[in-house]
Design a protein around this nucleic acid. Structure first.
Length: 444
RNA sequence: GUGGAUGUAGCUCAAUGGCAGAGCACCUGAUUGUGGUUCAGGUGGUUGUGGGUUCAAGUCCCAUCAUCCACCCCA
Protein backbone atom coordinates (compact mmCIF):
# COMPACT_ATOMS: atom_id res chain seq x y z
CA UNK A 1 0.00 0.00 0.00
CA UNK A 2 1.35 3.36 -1.00
CA UNK A 3 2.09 5.77 1.81
CA UNK A 4 0.01 8.86 2.04
CA UNK A 5 1.98 12.05 1.67
CA UNK A 6 2.11 13.82 5.02
CA UNK A 7 1.39 17.49 4.58
CA UNK A 8 -1.08 20.15 5.51
CA UNK A 9 -3.77 21.14 3.05
CA UNK A 10 -3.01 24.23 0.98
CA UNK A 11 -2.92 27.41 3.02
CA UNK A 12 -3.20 25.54 6.34
CA UNK A 13 -0.50 25.50 9.00
CA UNK A 14 0.57 23.45 12.00
CA UNK A 15 1.72 25.35 15.04
CA UNK A 16 4.42 23.33 16.76
CA UNK A 17 4.92 23.70 20.52
CA UNK A 18 7.58 26.41 20.40
CA UNK A 19 5.39 28.50 18.09
CA UNK A 20 2.35 27.85 20.26
CA UNK A 21 4.16 29.28 23.27
CA UNK A 22 4.69 32.54 21.39
CA UNK A 23 1.16 32.65 20.03
CA UNK A 24 -0.24 32.02 23.48
CA UNK A 25 1.86 34.82 24.90
CA UNK A 26 0.51 37.29 22.34
CA UNK A 27 -3.06 36.12 22.72
CA UNK A 28 -2.90 36.26 26.51
CA UNK A 29 -1.86 39.92 26.41
CA UNK A 30 -4.52 40.79 23.87
CA UNK A 31 -7.15 39.03 25.93
CA UNK A 32 -6.03 40.69 29.14
CA UNK A 33 -6.36 44.17 27.63
CA UNK A 34 -9.75 43.34 26.09
CA UNK A 35 -10.93 42.49 29.57
CA UNK A 36 -9.34 45.63 31.01
CA UNK A 37 -11.64 47.59 28.72
CA UNK A 38 -14.64 45.58 29.85
CA UNK A 39 -15.09 43.26 26.89
CA UNK A 40 -16.32 39.75 27.52
CA UNK A 41 -15.49 36.52 25.72
CA UNK A 42 -17.78 34.98 23.13
CA UNK A 43 -17.43 31.78 21.20
CA UNK A 44 -19.48 30.84 18.16
CA UNK A 45 -19.44 27.73 15.95
CA UNK A 46 -16.96 27.39 13.13
CA UNK A 47 -19.83 26.23 10.93
CA UNK A 48 -22.83 28.44 10.26
CA UNK A 49 -25.79 28.00 8.01
CA UNK A 50 -24.70 28.97 4.52
CA UNK A 51 -27.64 31.33 4.39
CA UNK A 52 -26.30 33.20 7.44
CA UNK A 53 -22.86 33.65 5.95
CA UNK A 54 -24.05 34.63 2.51
CA UNK A 55 -26.13 37.25 4.28
CA UNK A 56 -25.16 40.42 2.63
CA UNK A 57 -22.48 39.39 0.19
CA UNK A 58 -24.19 36.84 -1.97
CA UNK A 59 -22.05 35.56 -4.82
CA UNK A 60 -19.17 37.74 -3.69
CA UNK A 61 -18.75 35.59 -0.62
CA UNK A 62 -19.32 32.32 -2.40
CA UNK A 63 -15.95 32.32 -4.10
CA UNK A 64 -14.04 32.43 -0.84
CA UNK A 65 -16.28 30.34 1.36
CA UNK A 66 -15.60 26.76 2.31
CA UNK A 67 -18.77 24.75 2.29
CA UNK A 68 -19.02 21.82 4.68
CA UNK A 69 -20.70 18.61 3.62
CA UNK A 70 -21.56 15.41 5.37
CA UNK A 71 -23.16 12.14 4.32
CA UNK A 72 -26.75 13.25 4.67
CA UNK A 73 -28.14 15.40 1.95
CA UNK A 74 -31.47 16.26 3.56
CA UNK A 75 -30.33 19.07 5.85
CA UNK A 76 -29.73 22.78 5.43
CA UNK A 77 -26.34 23.49 3.95
CA UNK A 78 -23.61 24.77 6.27
CA UNK A 79 -20.29 26.49 5.61
CA UNK A 80 -17.19 27.61 7.48
CA UNK A 81 -17.14 31.17 8.78
CA UNK A 82 -14.90 33.59 6.89
CA UNK A 83 -14.97 36.24 9.60
CA UNK A 84 -16.29 36.79 13.12
CA UNK A 85 -18.41 39.83 12.40
CA UNK A 86 -21.28 38.19 10.55
CA UNK A 87 -21.58 35.52 13.27
CA UNK A 88 -21.63 38.31 15.87
CA UNK A 89 -24.49 39.99 14.07
CA UNK A 90 -26.33 36.67 14.04
CA UNK A 91 -25.69 36.13 17.78
CA UNK A 92 -27.01 39.58 18.66
CA UNK A 93 -30.17 39.05 16.65
CA UNK A 94 -30.70 35.53 17.96
CA UNK A 95 -30.10 36.34 21.65
CA UNK A 96 -31.38 39.88 21.57
CA UNK A 97 -33.55 39.49 24.65
CA UNK A 98 -30.77 37.94 26.73
CA UNK A 99 -28.36 40.84 26.38
CA UNK A 100 -28.07 44.13 28.16
CA UNK A 101 -26.91 46.74 25.73
CA UNK A 102 -24.33 47.95 25.11
CA UNK A 103 -23.03 44.48 24.48
CA UNK A 104 -19.25 44.35 24.39
CA UNK A 105 -17.63 41.12 23.32
CA UNK A 106 -14.27 39.92 22.11
CA UNK A 107 -13.48 36.77 20.16
CA UNK A 108 -10.15 35.28 19.17
CA UNK A 109 -10.74 32.39 16.82
CA UNK A 110 -9.86 30.83 13.49
CA UNK A 111 -11.69 31.76 10.28
CA UNK A 112 -11.43 30.23 6.83
CA UNK A 113 -11.14 31.68 3.35
CA UNK A 114 -10.52 29.87 0.11
CA UNK A 115 -8.17 32.61 -1.02
CA UNK A 116 -5.06 31.80 -2.96
CA UNK A 117 -2.34 31.59 -0.28
CA UNK A 118 0.48 34.13 -0.30
CA UNK A 119 2.93 35.53 2.20
CA UNK A 120 1.08 36.40 5.38
CA UNK A 121 -2.12 35.16 3.83
CA UNK A 122 -3.49 31.78 4.80
CA UNK A 123 -6.68 29.84 4.36
CA UNK A 124 -7.05 29.30 8.07
CA UNK A 125 -6.05 32.22 10.22
CA UNK A 126 -6.95 33.79 13.52
CA UNK A 127 -9.06 36.86 13.85
CA UNK A 128 -9.03 38.87 16.99
CA UNK A 129 -12.06 41.13 17.27
CA UNK A 130 -13.62 43.45 19.82
CA UNK A 131 -17.00 45.00 19.09
CA UNK A 132 -19.46 47.29 20.83
CA UNK A 133 -23.09 46.70 19.96
CA UNK A 134 -25.81 49.21 20.73
CA UNK A 135 -23.93 52.51 20.90
CA UNK A 136 -24.03 55.02 18.09
CA UNK A 137 -22.02 57.71 19.81
CA UNK A 138 -18.40 58.32 18.94
CA UNK A 139 -17.18 57.40 22.42
CA UNK A 140 -17.52 53.77 21.36
CA UNK A 141 -15.33 54.11 18.27
CA UNK A 142 -12.85 56.16 20.27
CA UNK A 143 -12.56 53.51 22.95
CA UNK A 144 -11.74 50.88 20.35
CA UNK A 145 -8.85 52.98 19.10
CA UNK A 146 -7.58 53.51 22.62
CA UNK A 147 -7.86 49.75 23.14
CA UNK A 148 -5.85 48.89 20.05
CA UNK A 149 -3.12 51.31 20.99
CA UNK A 150 -2.93 49.93 24.51
CA UNK A 151 -2.52 46.39 23.17
CA UNK A 152 0.16 47.32 20.65
CA UNK A 153 2.12 49.13 23.34
CA UNK A 154 1.85 46.18 25.72
CA UNK A 155 3.23 43.94 23.00
CA UNK A 156 6.18 46.26 22.57
CA UNK A 157 5.27 48.28 19.47
CA UNK A 158 6.03 51.97 19.65
CA UNK A 159 6.14 53.67 16.27
CA UNK A 160 2.70 53.32 14.74
CA UNK A 161 -0.18 55.46 13.57
CA UNK A 162 -3.91 54.85 13.60
CA UNK A 163 -5.31 56.29 10.41
CA UNK A 164 -8.87 57.49 10.79
CA UNK A 165 -11.41 58.32 8.13
CA UNK A 166 -15.17 58.24 7.80
CA UNK A 167 -17.25 56.52 5.16
CA UNK A 168 -19.61 59.46 5.25
CA UNK A 169 -16.80 61.76 4.17
CA UNK A 170 -15.94 59.41 1.33
CA UNK A 171 -19.55 59.39 0.28
CA UNK A 172 -19.58 63.17 0.40
CA UNK A 173 -16.46 63.31 -1.71
CA UNK A 174 -18.10 61.05 -4.23
CA UNK A 175 -21.04 63.43 -4.47
CA UNK A 176 -18.67 66.34 -4.71
CA UNK A 177 -16.85 64.60 -7.57
CA UNK A 178 -20.15 63.84 -9.27
CA UNK A 179 -19.51 60.12 -9.34
CA UNK A 180 -22.68 58.09 -9.79
CA UNK A 181 -23.48 55.63 -7.01
CA UNK A 182 -22.74 52.56 -9.09
CA UNK A 183 -19.21 53.83 -9.71
CA UNK A 184 -18.51 54.75 -6.11
CA UNK A 185 -16.77 51.47 -5.36
CA UNK A 186 -14.38 52.06 -8.26
CA UNK A 187 -13.63 55.49 -6.88
CA UNK A 188 -12.90 54.07 -3.41
CA UNK A 189 -10.73 51.36 -4.86
CA UNK A 190 -8.57 53.88 -6.65
CA UNK A 191 -8.34 56.18 -3.66
CA UNK A 192 -7.38 53.25 -1.44
CA UNK A 193 -4.31 52.62 -3.56
CA UNK A 194 -2.89 56.00 -2.61
CA UNK A 195 -0.12 54.47 -0.49
CA UNK A 196 0.81 52.03 -3.19
CA UNK A 197 0.62 54.01 -6.43
CA UNK A 198 0.94 57.54 -5.12
CA UNK A 199 -0.98 60.70 -5.90
CA UNK A 200 -0.09 60.54 -9.59
CA UNK A 201 -1.31 56.97 -9.87
CA UNK A 202 -4.62 57.77 -8.19
CA UNK A 203 -5.07 60.83 -10.34
CA UNK A 204 -4.50 58.76 -13.45
CA UNK A 205 -6.99 56.11 -12.38
CA UNK A 206 -9.63 58.68 -11.55
CA UNK A 207 -9.25 60.35 -14.95
CA UNK A 208 -9.47 56.97 -16.65
CA UNK A 209 -12.59 56.32 -14.57
CA UNK A 210 -14.23 59.17 -16.42
CA UNK A 211 -14.21 61.82 -13.72
CA UNK A 212 -13.82 65.35 -15.03
CA UNK A 213 -10.34 66.80 -14.91
CA UNK A 214 -11.13 69.81 -12.75
CA UNK A 215 -13.00 67.64 -10.26
CA UNK A 216 -10.07 65.24 -10.03
CA UNK A 217 -7.77 68.18 -9.34
CA UNK A 218 -9.95 69.35 -6.48
CA UNK A 219 -10.33 65.86 -5.10
CA UNK A 220 -6.62 65.32 -5.04
CA UNK A 221 -6.25 68.37 -2.85
CA UNK A 222 -8.91 67.07 -0.46
CA UNK A 223 -7.39 63.61 -0.27
CA UNK A 224 -3.97 64.91 0.64
CA UNK A 225 -5.27 67.12 3.43
CA UNK A 226 -4.77 64.53 6.18
CA UNK A 227 -3.28 65.28 9.59
CA UNK A 228 -4.08 64.87 13.24
CA UNK A 229 -5.23 68.39 14.02
CA UNK A 230 -8.89 69.31 14.00
CA UNK A 231 -8.08 72.24 11.70
CA UNK A 232 -7.63 69.62 9.01
CA UNK A 233 -11.27 68.76 9.57
CA UNK A 234 -12.31 72.39 9.62
CA UNK A 235 -10.74 72.97 6.22
CA UNK A 236 -12.43 69.94 4.78
CA UNK A 237 -15.75 71.04 6.26
CA UNK A 238 -15.55 74.31 4.39
CA UNK A 239 -15.01 72.67 1.03
CA UNK A 240 -17.70 70.05 1.56
CA UNK A 241 -20.15 72.31 3.37
CA UNK A 242 -22.87 71.68 0.79
CA UNK A 243 -22.82 67.94 1.26
CA UNK A 244 -24.78 67.02 4.33
CA UNK A 245 -23.42 63.53 4.71
CA UNK A 246 -19.83 64.76 4.57
CA UNK A 247 -20.53 67.43 7.18
CA UNK A 248 -21.97 64.76 9.45
CA UNK A 249 -18.89 62.58 8.97
CA UNK A 250 -16.53 65.43 9.69
CA UNK A 251 -18.44 66.29 12.83
CA UNK A 252 -18.11 62.68 14.01
CA UNK A 253 -14.37 62.80 13.58
CA UNK A 254 -14.23 66.05 15.50
CA UNK A 255 -16.00 64.39 18.40
CA UNK A 256 -13.57 61.51 18.22
CA UNK A 257 -10.59 63.84 18.39
CA UNK A 258 -11.92 65.15 21.70
CA UNK A 259 -12.61 61.69 23.11
CA UNK A 260 -9.23 60.33 22.06
CA UNK A 261 -7.39 62.89 24.13
CA UNK A 262 -9.35 61.81 27.19
CA UNK A 263 -8.61 58.17 26.43
CA UNK A 264 -4.84 58.54 26.55
CA UNK A 265 -4.39 58.59 22.79
CA UNK A 266 -1.63 61.10 22.02
CA UNK A 267 -1.92 63.13 18.83
CA UNK A 268 1.21 61.54 17.36
CA UNK A 269 -0.44 58.12 17.42
CA UNK A 270 -3.32 58.95 15.10
CA UNK A 271 -3.97 60.91 11.96
CA UNK A 272 -6.99 61.67 9.83
CA UNK A 273 -6.30 60.20 6.43
CA UNK A 274 -8.93 60.68 3.76
CA UNK A 275 -7.27 58.22 1.40
CA UNK A 276 -7.84 55.29 3.76
CA UNK A 277 -10.87 53.31 2.63
CA UNK A 278 -10.89 49.67 3.84
CA UNK A 279 -12.41 47.14 1.53
CA UNK A 280 -15.51 46.12 3.38
CA UNK A 281 -18.76 47.23 1.97
CA UNK A 282 -20.61 47.19 5.26
CA UNK A 283 -18.94 50.15 6.97
CA UNK A 284 -21.22 53.13 7.47
CA UNK A 285 -19.27 55.60 9.62
CA UNK A 286 -15.81 56.07 11.08
CA UNK A 287 -13.18 53.61 9.88
CA UNK A 288 -9.70 53.09 11.25
CA UNK A 289 -6.57 51.21 10.45
CA UNK A 290 -3.20 50.95 12.19
CA UNK A 291 0.09 50.96 10.31
CA UNK A 292 3.63 50.74 11.62
CA UNK A 293 5.73 53.81 10.87
CA UNK A 294 8.78 51.67 10.11
CA UNK A 295 7.45 48.70 8.16
CA UNK A 296 5.50 48.22 4.97
CA UNK A 297 3.76 45.00 6.00
CA UNK A 298 0.38 46.71 5.83
CA UNK A 299 -2.21 47.31 8.51
CA UNK A 300 -1.92 45.50 11.83
CA UNK A 301 -5.38 46.42 13.00
CA UNK A 302 -8.48 47.78 11.40
CA UNK A 303 -12.12 48.35 12.01
CA UNK A 304 -15.01 50.70 11.82
CA UNK A 305 -18.67 51.33 12.33
CA UNK A 306 -21.26 49.14 10.62
CA UNK A 307 -24.66 50.26 11.83
CA UNK A 308 -26.68 48.29 9.29
CA UNK A 309 -25.20 44.80 9.50
CA UNK A 310 -27.32 43.44 12.31
CA UNK A 311 -30.31 44.56 10.28
CA UNK A 312 -29.74 41.56 8.04
CA UNK A 313 -30.93 39.35 10.89
CA UNK A 314 -33.46 41.64 12.58
CA UNK A 315 -36.18 44.04 11.64
CA UNK A 316 -34.36 46.85 13.36
CA UNK A 317 -30.62 47.18 13.21
CA UNK A 318 -28.37 48.26 16.06
CA UNK A 319 -25.50 50.74 15.88
CA UNK A 320 -22.30 48.75 16.10
CA UNK A 321 -18.60 49.41 15.86
CA UNK A 322 -15.71 47.03 16.04
CA UNK A 323 -11.99 46.57 15.69
CA UNK A 324 -9.93 43.64 14.51
CA UNK A 325 -6.28 43.07 15.34
CA UNK A 326 -4.19 41.53 12.58
CA UNK A 327 -2.79 38.99 14.92
CA UNK A 328 -1.05 36.89 12.27
CA UNK A 329 0.84 39.90 11.00
CA UNK A 330 1.59 41.03 14.54
CA UNK A 331 3.07 37.62 15.32
CA UNK A 332 5.10 37.66 12.11
CA UNK A 333 6.54 41.05 13.05
CA UNK A 334 7.27 40.00 16.62
CA UNK A 335 9.07 36.90 15.31
CA UNK A 336 11.17 38.97 12.94
CA UNK A 337 12.05 41.49 15.61
CA UNK A 338 12.50 39.07 18.50
CA UNK A 339 9.96 40.88 20.65
CA UNK A 340 9.25 38.02 23.04
CA UNK A 341 10.49 37.99 26.62
CA UNK A 342 13.12 35.35 27.42
CA UNK A 343 10.79 33.81 29.97
CA UNK A 344 8.72 32.24 27.21
CA UNK A 345 11.45 29.75 26.31
CA UNK A 346 11.16 26.76 24.03
CA UNK A 347 9.25 24.43 26.31
CA UNK A 348 6.90 24.53 29.25
CA UNK A 349 8.96 21.89 31.05
CA UNK A 350 11.08 23.26 33.87
CA UNK A 351 12.80 20.10 35.10
CA UNK A 352 13.73 16.78 33.52
CA UNK A 353 13.95 14.00 36.09
CA UNK A 354 16.47 11.48 34.77
CA UNK A 355 16.23 7.76 35.37
CA UNK A 356 19.62 6.38 36.39
CA UNK A 357 18.76 2.78 35.56
CA UNK A 358 15.66 0.61 35.49
CA UNK A 359 16.00 -0.20 39.20
CA UNK A 360 15.80 3.51 39.99
CA UNK A 361 12.62 4.01 37.94
CA UNK A 362 10.36 4.18 40.98
CA UNK A 363 12.63 6.58 42.85
CA UNK A 364 12.64 8.85 39.82
CA UNK A 365 8.86 8.72 39.53
CA UNK A 366 8.51 9.57 43.21
CA UNK A 367 10.81 12.57 42.78
CA UNK A 368 8.86 13.73 39.74
CA UNK A 369 5.63 13.64 41.75
CA UNK A 370 7.27 15.50 44.61
CA UNK A 371 8.27 18.26 42.20
CA UNK A 372 4.87 18.33 40.52
CA UNK A 373 3.12 18.56 43.85
CA UNK A 374 5.43 21.46 44.58
CA UNK A 375 4.17 23.23 41.46
CA UNK A 376 7.14 22.50 39.17
CA UNK A 377 6.41 21.51 35.57
CA UNK A 378 8.26 18.24 35.44
CA UNK A 379 9.02 15.70 32.73
CA UNK A 380 9.92 12.18 33.88
CA UNK A 381 12.38 10.74 31.38
CA UNK A 382 11.18 7.68 29.52
CA UNK A 383 12.69 5.67 26.75
CA UNK A 384 12.39 2.25 25.22
CA UNK A 385 16.11 1.99 24.64
CA UNK A 386 19.08 1.81 27.01
CA UNK A 387 19.08 4.43 29.74
CA UNK A 388 22.14 6.64 29.53
CA UNK A 389 22.54 9.85 31.43
CA UNK A 390 24.31 11.53 28.52
CA UNK A 391 21.36 10.86 26.28
CA UNK A 392 18.96 12.17 28.87
CA UNK A 393 20.96 15.38 29.26
CA UNK A 394 20.98 15.67 25.49
CA UNK A 395 17.20 15.36 25.47
CA UNK A 396 16.89 18.17 28.02
CA UNK A 397 19.32 20.34 26.11
CA UNK A 398 17.67 19.93 22.74
CA UNK A 399 14.25 20.55 24.15
CA UNK A 400 15.41 23.60 26.06
CA UNK A 401 14.56 22.23 29.51
CA UNK A 402 16.51 24.45 31.90
CA UNK A 403 17.16 22.06 34.79
CA UNK A 404 18.03 18.36 35.04
CA UNK A 405 17.57 16.31 38.21
CA UNK A 406 19.85 13.33 38.75
CA UNK A 407 19.20 10.70 41.37
CA UNK A 408 21.68 7.87 41.30
CA UNK A 409 22.59 5.32 43.99
CA UNK A 410 24.61 7.93 45.91
CA UNK A 411 21.71 10.35 46.08
CA UNK A 412 19.21 7.68 47.08
CA UNK A 413 21.46 6.53 49.89
CA UNK A 414 21.70 10.06 51.30
CA UNK A 415 18.10 11.09 50.51
CA UNK A 416 19.31 13.91 48.30
CA UNK A 417 19.02 14.90 44.66
CA UNK A 418 21.48 16.58 42.31
CA UNK A 419 20.11 19.50 40.32
CA UNK A 420 21.99 20.93 37.37
CA UNK A 421 21.16 24.13 35.53
CA UNK A 422 22.24 23.49 31.95
CA UNK A 423 22.60 27.08 30.90
CA UNK A 424 25.68 27.73 33.07
CA UNK A 425 26.47 24.27 34.43
CA UNK A 426 25.63 25.16 38.04
CA UNK A 427 25.21 21.95 40.02
CA UNK A 428 23.84 21.63 43.55
CA UNK A 429 22.68 18.84 45.83
CA UNK A 430 19.70 19.29 48.14
CA UNK A 431 17.50 17.20 50.38
CA UNK A 432 14.73 15.73 48.31
CA UNK A 433 12.13 17.53 50.37
CA UNK A 434 13.64 20.87 49.36
CA UNK A 435 13.96 20.02 45.68
CA UNK A 436 10.95 22.04 44.48
CA UNK A 437 12.05 25.19 46.31
CA UNK A 438 15.61 24.80 45.05
CA UNK A 439 14.37 24.43 41.47
CA UNK A 440 12.38 27.62 41.81
CA UNK A 441 15.51 29.35 43.07
CA UNK A 442 17.59 28.05 40.17
CA UNK A 443 14.97 29.19 37.70
CA UNK A 444 15.37 32.68 39.08
C1' G B 1 -9.19 34.36 -11.59
C1' U B 2 -4.25 36.65 -14.39
C1' G B 3 1.11 36.73 -15.09
C1' G B 4 6.10 35.09 -13.53
C1' A B 5 9.61 31.96 -10.86
C1' U B 6 10.83 27.46 -8.38
C1' G B 7 10.28 21.98 -7.22
C1' U B 8 16.96 17.30 -5.89
C1' A B 9 18.09 13.87 1.56
C1' G B 10 14.24 16.03 7.48
C1' C B 11 16.18 21.53 6.34
C1' U B 12 19.22 25.03 3.13
C1' C B 13 21.14 24.19 -1.49
C1' A B 14 25.04 22.08 -5.42
C1' A B 15 25.66 18.85 -9.74
C1' U B 16 28.35 21.24 -18.99
C1' G B 17 22.82 15.90 -21.39
C1' G B 18 27.46 11.29 -18.95
C1' C B 19 28.83 7.38 -11.46
C1' A B 20 23.12 12.16 -7.37
C1' G B 21 26.60 15.54 -3.81
C1' A B 22 27.75 19.20 0.38
C1' G B 23 26.59 21.77 4.89
C1' C B 24 23.24 21.51 8.83
C1' A B 25 20.00 18.00 11.32
C1' C B 26 19.55 12.79 12.79
C1' C B 27 21.83 7.88 14.64
C1' U B 28 26.34 5.25 16.72
C1' G B 29 31.02 5.49 19.05
C1' A B 30 35.33 8.11 21.44
C1' U B 31 32.82 9.12 27.01
C1' U B 32 29.50 2.53 31.97
C1' G B 33 27.27 9.36 36.77
C1' U B 34 26.36 14.72 32.88
C1' G B 35 24.22 18.08 27.54
C1' G B 36 26.44 22.12 24.30
C1' U B 37 32.41 22.02 21.74
C1' U B 38 35.61 18.46 19.16
C1' C B 39 36.93 13.89 16.50
C1' A B 40 35.64 9.15 13.90
C1' G B 41 31.88 6.43 11.59
C1' G B 42 26.77 5.76 9.84
C1' U B 43 21.40 6.10 8.21
C1' G B 44 18.85 8.82 4.82
C1' G B 45 16.96 9.66 -2.68
C1' U B 46 11.66 6.33 -7.70
C1' U B 47 15.58 14.20 -8.33
C1' G B 48 7.05 16.52 -7.02
C1' U B 49 4.00 13.30 -10.50
C1' G B 50 2.89 11.32 -15.57
C1' G B 51 4.44 11.10 -20.45
C1' G B 52 8.04 12.36 -24.56
C1' U B 53 13.09 13.27 -27.10
C1' U B 54 17.99 10.71 -26.57
C1' C B 55 22.91 5.52 -26.70
C1' A B 56 22.21 8.29 -22.08
C1' A B 57 17.57 13.01 -18.65
C1' G B 58 18.07 15.97 -12.07
C1' U B 59 19.38 18.68 -16.64
C1' C B 60 15.80 19.23 -22.92
C1' C B 61 10.16 19.11 -24.44
C1' C B 62 4.76 18.51 -23.09
C1' A B 63 1.19 17.88 -19.35
C1' U B 64 -0.11 17.92 -14.31
C1' C B 65 0.31 19.00 -9.11
C1' A B 66 2.52 21.92 -5.30
C1' U B 67 5.06 26.13 -3.32
C1' C B 68 6.70 31.20 -3.68
C1' C B 69 6.30 36.22 -5.92
C1' A B 70 3.48 40.16 -8.35
C1' C B 71 -1.63 41.31 -9.64
C1' C B 72 -7.17 40.66 -8.78
C1' C B 73 -9.58 40.34 -4.30
C1' C B 74 -9.22 40.85 0.77
C1' A B 75 -15.98 40.20 4.84
Amino acid sequence: MAQIEARTAAGMRDFLPNEMLKRRYVISIVEEVFQLYGFEPLQTPILENTETLLGKYGEEAEGLMYSAKHGRQDEASVAMRYDLTVPLARVVAEHYNEFNFPFKRYQIAPVFRGDRPQRGRFREFYQCDADIVGVGRMIADSELISLAIKILRRLGFEAFTVKINNRKILTGMGQYAGVPDEQLSDLYRSVDKFDKIGADGVQKELLEGGIAEDVVERMMTLLQAGGSGTETLDNLAEVLADYEVAVEGIDELQQMATHLTRLDVPAENYAFDFTMVRGLGYYTGPIFETVLDDDSIGSISGGGRYDDLIGIFRKESLPTTGISLGIERIITLMDERGMYPDSIGETVVQVLVTVFNREMQDEAAALAMRLRNGGIRTELYMSDSRLKLGKQFGHADKKGIPIVAVMGPDEVEQDIVTLKRLQDGTEVTVKRGEAADKVRELLG
